[in-house]
Design a binder for these strands. Structure first.
Lengths: 199, 199
DNA sequence: ATCTATAGCTTGACACTGTCCATTGACAAT
DNA sequence: ATTGTCAATGGACAGTGTCAAGCTATAGAT
């Protein structure tokens, strides 16, 4: 009988490949993420990854899923402050901080949604973790009477506002002289202020 | 002396190629936008476009610029209503309507910002037209005393909120049961409400 | 200790991409 | 009619993702 791969062996390889792909993308953009480059960096043949991933698309999806996982960890790490509003503020700042810390990955996470084939379940699960992190914060604020409206709607608006801010900043769509930090605070303040008064 | 190309000849070819590329992208995604496909659709050789465009990147940039031009036309077409706030509302709805009308182009416009080479001046100019359209509306509202804050900041927040909403919708990042129209109204109302009270 | 069946890896193709470059074709001025 | 030259073409070339056949090394059977 030949040598068999432990499940932890598979996971280890997948993890290492994911790290390499992430680094290649961060350093050289999508053009640098090539099967040959990944293989060279990993010290294996160019077709070896096909044992562990079905596609190159599968690899990209895994990199994106890992990014969403790190973002969700950040959002969840925002502890229960005594002030619910303050917690929402901190959550927003953590969101933007992640985007600034990993701009390349952030753009890959949101800019590569292609309606091809069946979507990665792992990716979908990690996105959901982010959803609930924001939704929980909104729900608590509404329950505490500090915000008014449908928690689901409020969560979506909050996420969208922050995401739009980050994307336009990363794409340099804003006028040249803008400070993302103060703009982030302004967005958070404006949204929260708008959510305070009953509809 | 050989046959020379009129400047209008060049513009005509460029325009037709841009239309073809836009259609190919809308129908088959980025993978369908290939020099050979464009050439076949245009009835010319695969290298002929290189007389009119420097690169494939130049072609993509032109398609994006045309998209920004159509969006800017929409935003500018929002007439001076007697109510400044109502004008801002209508501008927001027009923005989202464009994204829904041309989702593929919208994603190309915002999802293809690569820090490669020198940026297309035409593209930059069309983006600026969008900026001023939103900024003017914000400026007027502040001048009329209906909104409070720095007009530039308000314009950026408004654009970012709408853009984030559209992107998360197009990328299916929201929970399954959401209505973009009502979400758009909610975003507009929330932002405007938050911008009403002095900071 | 030897043999063998086979999981995992590798190499060689293939179709495809964008783009350069030499060649061809067609036309305006002489 | 000749000619000079711009525009268009088709043949390459390096690069891509991926399939398929062959190779290697090893775990279990003898």
């Amino acid at each position: 009988m030949p040598r068999f791969l432990t499940e932890s062996d598979e996971n280890k390889f997948r993890h290492e490949l994911c790290d390499v792909a992430t680094r290649l993308f961060t350093e050289g953009g999508l053009a640098a993420v090539t099967m040959r480059n990944i293989a060279d960096e990993l010290g294996c043949s160019r077709t070896t990854p096909y044992r562990y991933f079905t596609d190159k698309a599968d690899i990209i999806a895994t990199v994106r899923a890992a990014g969403f996982a790190r973002l969700a960890d950040r959002l969840i790490s925002v502890g229960d402050s005594d002030d619910v509003i303050e917690r929402i503020r901190e959550l927003g700042h953590q969101y933007v901080e992640f985007a600034i810390a990993e701009p390349a990955v952030y753009r890959l996470m949101f800019g590569m949604s292609q309606p091809d084939g069946e979507p990665s379940l792992l990716l979908e699960a990690e996105v959901e973790r982010n959803r609930v992190a924001v939704r929980n914060a909104a729900r608590e604020a509404v329950a505490a009477g500090r915000l008014h409206g449908d928690p689901g709607t409020l969560a979506r608006l909050y996420w969208a506002g922050l995401h739009g801010l980050v994307e336009l900043h990363l794409d340099d769509k804003f006028s040249p002289d803008h400070d993302l930090d103060s703009l982030t605070s302004a967005m958070i303040d404006t949204l929260i202020a708008g959510m305070r008064s009953p509809a």
